[in-house]
Simulated scan of single mutants.
Amino acid sequence: MPTRATNAKKGDPLSRREEQVLRLIAAGLTNAELGRQLFLSENTVRIYLRRVLAKLGARNRTQAVVVGVAMGHIPLPAGSVPVIEALVRPVEVPAVGA
C-alpha cells in the first residue's frame, strides 16, 4: 500500500504501480474500473492517483496524462508523436499590430 499522498513531491520518480495507474487513466478508466483491473479498493486507487498528480505536478487526470506522455511514461502508437509534440510545444503568438 502506498504511503501518504502528501509525502509525494513533484519530480519524484513514479513507482511501477503508479505508472500502471497513469496508463489506465490515459485509457479512460474510472477509479472503480482501475480498482477492479488492479485488484485494489477505490480508496487505494484515489491514494495512488493523488501521488501520481503530486509527482507529475498535475492538477487533474487530463493534465497528468499530458505530462505523462511528455515525460515518456505513456507509450504512444507509431505516427502520433508529431501531434503530441505540437501539444506540448510552446506556441508563438504574433505581436499586436504585426
Results as ranks from 00 to 15, higher is better:
3 T>I: 11
5 A>K: 12
5 A>F: 04
7 N>I: 09
8 A>M: 05
8 A>R: 05
8 A>N: 08
9 K>Y: 10
10 K>A: 09
11 G>I: 09
11 G>K: 08
11 G>L: 03
12 D>C: 09
12 D>L: 08
13 P>H: 07
13 P>T: 07
14 L>W: 02
14 L>M: 08
16 R>Y: 03
16 R>W: 02
17 R>D: 11
18 E>T: 07
18 E>I: 05
19 E>F: 01
19 E>I: 02
19 E>V: 04
20 Q>N: 07
20 Q>V: 02
20 Q>A: 06
21 V>T: 06
23 R>I: 00
23 R>S: 00
25 I>N: 02
25 I>T: 10
25 I>A: 06
26 A>V: 02
26 A>F: 02
27 A>Y: 02
28 G>W: 02
29 L>C: 05
30 T>P: 01
30 T>A: 04
30 T>M: 03
31 N>T: 05
32 A>T: 04
32 A>N: 05
32 A>V: 05
33 E>S: 11
33 E>D: 07
33 E>W: 01
34 L>R: 01
35 G>V: 05
35 G>L: 02
35 G>W: 01
36 R>G: 10
36 R>V: 11
37 Q>E: 11
37 Q>D: 08
37 Q>I: 02
37 Q>F: 02
38 L>M: 12
38 L>C: 06
38 L>Y: 01
38 L>W: 00
39 F>W: 04
40 L>T: 03
40 L>E: 04
42 E>P: 00
42 E>T: 01
45 V>N: 00
46 R>N: 00
46 R>Y: 00
47 I>M: 01
47 I>D: 01
49 L>W: 04
51 R>Y: 03
51 R>K: 09
51 R>Q: 12
52 V>M: 10
54 A>Q: 14
55 K>N: 13
57 G>D: 11
58 A>N: 05
58 A>I: 03
58 A>S: 15
59 R>M: 13
59 R>V: 04
60 N>D: 15
60 N>K: 15
61 R>P: 04
62 T>S: 15
62 T>E: 15
62 T>A: 15
62 T>Y: 12
63 Q>V: 07
64 A>D: 08
65 V>C: 15
65 V>K: 06
65 V>N: 05
66 V>W: 12
66 V>H: 11
67 V>W: 06
67 V>I: 14
67 V>M: 13
67 V>D: 14
68 G>L: 01
69 V>S: 05
69 V>C: 12
70 A>L: 00
70 A>S: 06
71 M>G: 09
73 H>Q: 09
75 P>H: 00
76 L>C: 08
77 P>R: 07
77 P>K: 06
77 P>N: 07
78 A>P: 01
78 A>I: 03
79 G>L: 06
79 G>K: 09
80 S>I: 07
81 V>M: 11
81 V>A: 12
82 P>Q: 12
83 V>E: 09
85 E>R: 15
85 E>C: 10
85 E>H: 11
85 E>L: 14
87 L>I: 10
87 L>H: 10
89 R>E: 10
90 P>A: 13
91 V>G: 08
91 V>P: 03
92 E>D: 12
92 E>G: 07
95 A>M: 10
96 V>G: 08
96 V>F: 15
96 V>W: 15
97 G>E: 12
98 A>R: 14
98 A>M: 12
